[in-house]
C-alpha cells in the first residue's frame, strides 16, 4: 500500500489497511513513495496486489501504474483517493480498479480478495 503524492493525508490508506488486516491480509505499508520505491517494494516483497492512494495529478499515478505493470505484469492494482471521474476512467483503462471517496470498505475488501483469489 503506497501513497503516490507528497501531500500527507493518511486517512484513507490507514482505514483500508486496517480493514484488509482484519480480513486476514498482510499489508505492507510503504507510506509516501515514488515510482521507484513502489516498484522496488512490489518486486522485493513479492506482493500479490498493489494498492495505491492517489491524489493530485493523475499522470503521477499513471506513471506508477505503468512501472508496476512493467515489473510485475501479473500483479493486479487497485487505487483510491481524491480522483475526479475523468481520472477514474483513465486508471480503469489501464486495468486498475478504482475506489473513490464514499466507497464501502466491504467492497474494497471484496475486491482485494477477488483480485488475489487465483494467486
Amino acid at each position: 500500500m503506497a501513497k503516490t503524492g507528497l501531500d500527507g493525508h493518511w486517512r484513507g490508506p490507514t482505514i483500508v489497511a486496517r480493514a484488509l488486516r482484519d480480513a486476514g491480509f498482510e499489508v505492507i505499508m510503504i507510506g509516501m513513495a515514488n515510482t521507484d520505491d513502489i516498484v522496488r517494494a512490489a518486486v522485493d516483497e513479492d506482493v500479490d496486489l498493489v494498492g495505491l492512494n492517489v491524489g493530485g495529478h493523475i499522470d503521477v499515478a499513471i506513471r506508477a501504474v505503468n512501472s508496476v505493470q512493467e515489473a510485475r505484469p501479473e500483479v493486479p492494482i487497485f487505487a483510491g483517493g481524491t480522483v475526479p471521474p475523468r481520472s477514474v476512467k483513465m486508471l480503469q483503462d489501464l486495468g486498475v480498479e478504482v475506489y473513490p471517496p464514499g466507497s464501502q470498505l466491504a467492497d474494497i475488501v471484496d475486491a482485494a480478495q477477488r483480485l488475489t483469489a487465483t494467486r
Partner: peptide, 20 residues
C-alpha cells in the same frame, strides 16, 4: 507481529526504511 484474530498484519517498517 500478525494479528491473533485475523492472521493479517500491517507491516510498516518500509515507511522508515526505503533504502531507495
Amino acid at each position: 507481529p500478525s494479528s491473533p484474530f485475523s492472521d493479517g498484519a500491517i507491516l510498516g517498517d518500509r515507511v522508515r526504511m526505503q533504502g531507495g
